[in-house]
């Protein structure tokens, strides 16, 4: 196993779930209860020093028990190392601790995840929609059950030359 993953396993035996190394990327899956602690450790510990947030993302797996996956990708500028920290949340309780108090840039990135996938972040200072309109009523567009062409409101438009 990758030394960083091993270290996380040692320090957080309850939170660590598994580590995958593929194509040179290290991805660590952790439990939702411990993700904030683990990220705090990755950021603050001088051996880790993951000070740069790359992106926050989310993946929808509708057929699995814990439907959503929240992905934090962070980088250490001093060590030139990258790590992906992932956690799973179920659909009926999709809430994760916000990382805004660790990396300031997480603010907008988490808002985008909320906007697109409907995952909420605890302790986020301003969790509102960012790309879609504030009053958008049709749900979360990047979920797999959201149709590619939208939910039908375009069908109500009348087109030029069309008789109705």
């Amino acid at each position: 196993m990758h030394p960083v993953a091993e270290r996380i396993q040692q320090v957080f035996p309850a939170g660590f779930q598994r580590a995958v190394e593929w194509r040179g990327d290290l991805a660590v899956q952790v439990s939702r209860e411990h993700i904030h602690e683990i990220c705090r450790y990755l950021h603050d510990n001088p051996d880790m020093d993951y000070d740069y947030i790359v992106h926050v993302s989310s993946v929808d797996w509708p057929d699995e028990a814990e439907r959503f996956e929240v992905v934090y990708e962070v980088y250490s500028i001093r060590r030139r190392a990258r790590i992906r920290v992932k956690t799973r949340v179920p659909e009926d309780d999709c809430i994760v601790d916000s990382m805004t108090n660790i990396w300031k840039g997480a603010d907008f990135m988490e808002r985008e995840v909320f906007d697109m996938m409907g995952i909420r972040f605890r302790n986020h200072p301003n969790l509102i929609r960012i790309l879609m309109p504030d009053d958008y009523p049709e749900g979360y567009p990047l979920r797999k059950d959201f149709p590619l062409r939208g939910k039908g409101w375009r069908d109500t438009f009348s087109f030029i030359g069309e008789k109705n």
Binding site: R23, D25, H55, E73
Partner: peptide, 20 residues
């Protein structure tokens, strides 16, 4: 099957693609 992140230094900054 798998997932990767690949960042590239574009003119404006790090342009990355995370593909699952």
């Amino acid at each position: 099957k798998g997932e990767i992140y690949c960042g590239t230094e574009a003119a404006k900054g790090e342009l990355g693609f995370y593909i699952v």
